[in-house]
Computed example of a mutant assay.
Amino acid sequence: MRNEPGTAVYDQELRLEAYRFHRCSFPKHFHEYYVIGYIADGRGLLICRDVRYALEKGNLILYNPGDLHSCSENGAPPDYWGLHIPRETMLDLTGELTGRRTLPVFSRNVVSDPEAAWDFRALHRQIMDGSREFGKEERLLLLLSRLLRLCGQPFQASPPAGREAVERARAFMEEHCGERITLERVAGEAGLSKSALLRAFAREKGVTPYNYLESLRIGEAKKLLEQGVPPAEAALRTGFSDQSHFTNYFSRFIGLSPGAYREIFTEKERTTHEK
């Protein structure tokens, strides 16, 4: 099932994105940012970090950067609301709450908590309605504070030495994600054969190197589209083979076409100039 059209807003004051999707499903993927989601209606099946969750109306969903997940319908396709929070924004939020700019880790991916859900709904509506009141930021801090008390924990220590080859491959792909790179080149940077890299990378990251690279490219493409770069140019600059491949992949993972996503930020700039 493909996602039905969604709506999205970028909140310049909070420095995050808000989404609403009707009857949604998403294939296996990950994000470079934090996600706080909400099931507004319907039911779904979430698989995150190899754990299966039956989603019900009122559930909150939490993703850390890099959490591999997919979501499908479970009887009644879910309506989904989401907040996408960049790492830098999260650092500032946790610094405000704790006095330390430390990236948290959510230990649970699905939360059933009426108070947190109420805060989320109120905050999400304020963002979607374009509220400029300071109560919006207050609501965000209250929500995050409660979620961190419910299921926050410090980040884990750095990867052990056994994962160093995979980390070299990951770092190389992040640095060169806009280029046409080959599996042989990535394996060479990691110091492994191609088959050994595939096994090790899938074991450590839960996806193949190519799937990881595609997710990185989508993240970079989003940044270019936010700056007003045309979709065709964004596809070229992020290493996609052609615009059709880029459009299909972007739409599957973001829920909007590249042009629709770019329009969010075009509208933001237009509104700013009119003030």
Rank of each mutant, 00 (worst) to 15 (best):
A122I: 08
G152Y: 15
L140S: 04
L142A: 12
E137C: 00
L123W: 03
L140F: 05
I127D: 04
R132W: 01
F155E: 12
T94Y: 08
A117E: 11
R146I: 00
C151T: 13
L103G: 01
E133I: 00
G152H: 11
A117T: 04
P159C: 02
L141H: 09
R163M: 11
T102L: 15
L147A: 01
W118V: 02
R100L: 14
V111R: 04
P86L: 08
P159Y: 03
A165G: 07
P154G: 10
V110F: 04
G95W: 11
D92W: 05
T94W: 07
L123R: 02
A165R: 14
R163I: 00
R146K: 15
P104N: 10
N109G: 06
R125A: 14
F106V: 00
E137A: 07
L147N: 00
R146M: 03
R100N: 10
T89I: 07
R125V: 07
A165P: 05
H84V: 07
D113A: 05
W118H: 12
W118K: 10
A165W: 12
A122L: 12
D129A: 10
L144P: 01
G95R: 09
R125T: 07
S158R: 11
E138L: 12
F134W: 15
H84Y: 13
G162P: 03
L141T: 03
P86G: 08
V110S: 01
P154D: 13
L142N: 09
A116P: 00
L97S: 12
D113F: 07
R146P: 00
P114G: 03
A161S: 13
D113E: 14
L123P: 03
